[in-house]
Write a protein that binds this DNA or RNA. Structure first.
Lengths: 357, 357
DNA sequence: AGATTTTTCTATATCGATATAGTACGAGCC
DNA sequence: GGCTCGTACTATATCGATATAGAAAAATCT
């Protein structure tokens, strides 16, 4: 059976192929009457419409934009914060009639999505900046938008004020009287790093900013820190990190966590040890994800607006698409963060005891 | 500035275009030495690799498969059950080097993703079977796999035993002694439908199966039901549905809910009315999503294996891709469900009272 | 009526790659 | 020497559409 193409219909009707193309893609280019006949013939012959692949080649656009994620797409789907962000992106892109292609940064026997999949542009989201996948996207000269990444000249970006938020969180603990604070941040490795002194350059962007924010504020106040690098990807790592922090003799009186999810598991670890939150241990999260409110006690955290972040990123990308190759001034956006004080933080035990005396 | 294509490199090196193509795509077709020279020249001239669009046209494959969802992609991202399923799909597809394109069923000023986006095949997931988007996919003769959809001859599918699970849930309530049960199911409309007698044909597949399973078992036992159709898309609808059910004088002693999320909101509504769960009201969910365990009391529900569902769907699709147009016997798979009894169900108050006498 | 514009349709040249068949040449075999 | 065979590379014909420019007919203007 021969394939049905524009030509098939053109031949059947004795018109030019171009006319058939126009019937589908540019209705104003032919009379309504002829267009009807063309469409009728198309239906009869079982022609669905212009082949997207051929159209993509000729027009140069595909109607889909990519989102580059970490190696593990599967893991990203379990991340509620990422999903809120995606939701906003999807909303905005759907409005513009664009589809969303998820790209894994991983290479599987020769297949490299970032290099091989056709798309009109891409969002680079929260993935290892050294990833070869990012390089491919850059080399392809695709319109890009960086999200939660270190800025790069010439590429529009959306970030949140991670450092400012982290400082506010640290300051909050200082103000409460804490002078010995645990810091739990994500690392790329697979083993817990206790008492580490992380190289900022080895951390992912958001992690680095938050870590530096904490350090900056705590350092200024002369507080001590206990650093633990927690591998991403498994909740049990969070729990173990919590235990590693709380089992020790010089246990801190408060913990700053990279995320609300991590904070949740630390609270669990604390409660399993018979520690009361916030009386014996203050815990602060990051993101203000839905779990922050579900946790008992409710979680003090740093809020960021995922929805706005997604919407802005999608808008920047569609703008970049519209401008085509001509790159306007790349704007770097920074969204605000806000400390949200809830029930999981309180003065350290010693201070409380002193006050009660 | 001229674009850099295979021809550019071929000309620069004085070899044929085909040789350059082979250097990238079929290394065994030319000597290692020449290949090196070609690749070196390519890098120097800033050639990234074969254009995915052109390759897609000629080869006929794009390296991405679609997932067709409801009108609102954004909503799907907030659905934890859908995300678990996606996670498994993504895992499996990444393993095969395929990217995942999310398709909204909505049409936006002439753009219809299901018709216009190029892909090698698609999963049709939990969307209105009457949606034009599904028709487009069918007309394109793309390899498809139906998930949580009514079976269609010739199209492989993955379903879970919704009806069996629903029957088990209903039987559980009957066995506990309940004879008056609320049924909360999803509808496509935007208004709560209280005391409705829904047309099964108007319900989405999974909804229909669950509803019919409940009815079947409750009917056989001679129990009464109070039916409420709950619009999808907003948690407040769930809560209002709960209130509509519990505020009435002839309040049922138990509720069967379409999902765990819905059950969560119903429990909240009950508690707000001063009703104790399960002493005054038994509540059963569906899916066994993570929230079922987080809820207090923990939720009696019907478990399905999202991960297996996703993995199977992805596997069926890649198999269909491999077979190309030649459609093997389309298999319809049905995954089992399992009643998980937890704390949210108990005998109705009257029975308890009688037992205490 | 003649000039000008508009409408409607067609012819041709791409878009950037890959499949297929074929050529040239050296090696192996009897 | 003549035959087959394998390796390394090339020439040509697509894949299925759309942009562009142009031709013919119809409509508008002066």
């Amino acid at each position: 059976m021969g394939k049905v193409t524009l030509q098939t219909i053109a031949d059947a009707l004795g018109v030019s192929r171009m006319t058939v193309s126009n019937a589908f893609s540019r209705p104003d280019q032919l009379s309504a009457e002829l267009r009807e006949r063309v469409l009728a013939a198309a239906t009869e012959l079982g022609y669905v419409g212009p082949d997207p692949r051929a159209r993509a080649l000729k027009r140069g656009t595909t109607g889909a934009v990519g989102v580059l994620l970490t190696d593990s797409l599967a893991y990203a789907f379990t991340d509620e914060v990422a999903m809120r962000f995606f939701s906003a992106i999807a909303e905005e892109l759907t409005r513009r009639g664009l589809a969303l292609t998820l790209l894994s940064a991983a290479e599987t026997d020769g297949h490299v999505p970032a290099r091989d999949v056709s798309m009109d542009g891409a969002l680079v989201y929260s993935c290892d900046p050294k990833s070869p996948a990012v390089d491919w996207l850059l080399k392809r000269h695709l319109p890009l938008v960086y999200v939660d990444q270190t800025d790069r000249p010439g590429i529009p970006s959306v970030n949140v004020d991670d450092r400012g938020g982290a400082r506010a969180a640290a300051r909050h603990l200082i103000d409460l009287g804490h002078r010995r604070v645990g810091l739990l941040y994500s690392i790329l490795g697979s083993e817990l790093e206790v008492d580490a002194d992380p190289q900022p350059s080895a951390l992912a962007h958001a992690t680095r900013e938050r870590y530096l924010g904490w350090k900056q504020e705590l350092g200024a106040a002369g507080a001590e820190t206990v650093n633990i690098g927690v591998p991403i990807g498994g909740r049990d790592h969070h729990y173990r990190a919590g235990r590693a922090l709380l089992d020790r003799p010089d246990r801190p009186t408060a913990v700053l966590c990279f995320s609300d999810v991590m904070a949740t598991d630390v609270v669990r670890a604390a409660q399993d040890l018979g520690l009361r939150v916030p009386e014996d241990l203050s815990v602060v999260g990051f993101d203000d994800s839905p779990v922050a409110l579900q946790l008992r006690p409710t979680l003090t955290t740093v809020r960021q607006d995922f929805t706005e972040k997604g919407r802005l990123a999608a808008t920047l990308l569609t703008e970049a698409l519209a401008q085509g190759a001509a790159p306007a001034r790349a704007r770097h956006h920074m969204l605000p963060t806000e400390l949200v004080v809830r029930e999981s933080t309180a003065p350290p035990p010693s201070v409380t005891a002193a006050a009660e005396r």
